[in-house]
Amino acid sequence: MAAGGFVSVNTGNAKDANNILIPKDDADAAFNAAACIGCGACVAACKNASAMLFVSAKVSQLALLPQGKIEAKNRVLNMVKQMDEEGFGNCTNTGACEAECPKEISLENIARMNREYLY
């Protein structure tokens, strides 16, 4: 998280909340990704001990919202780098993470993160 799972905004001086309009579907999708409770089941379930579902849920939440778009590229690069450095394994798309997630976080988030990473 410290590697970029945030929007770089200091306290105070934020614009009126309704100045940023967000389509309901995007807000709902961001919320569904943000529902992750960080329990670690996805990593524990993965034969590669990959943390892709966890990281992608945060990357997705912020990539779906205009507030998060500005830093989207750096965020995904830094968070993936951090994940690799901490020794988590690679994702081979087995889907075990999604199957065991108590909050039913979707594999789509991994796809979205890969897209953010590549483009």
Partner: peptide, 20 residues
């Protein structure tokens, strides 16, 4: 201000179809 701050951080509050 709290709501403004949280929205700026990317908190996904519930929204209406018009985006508000």
């Amino acid at each position: 201000n709290i709501i403004d701050q949280c929205v700026a951080q990317g908190v996904p509050f519930a929204r209406e179809y018009g985006g508000t």
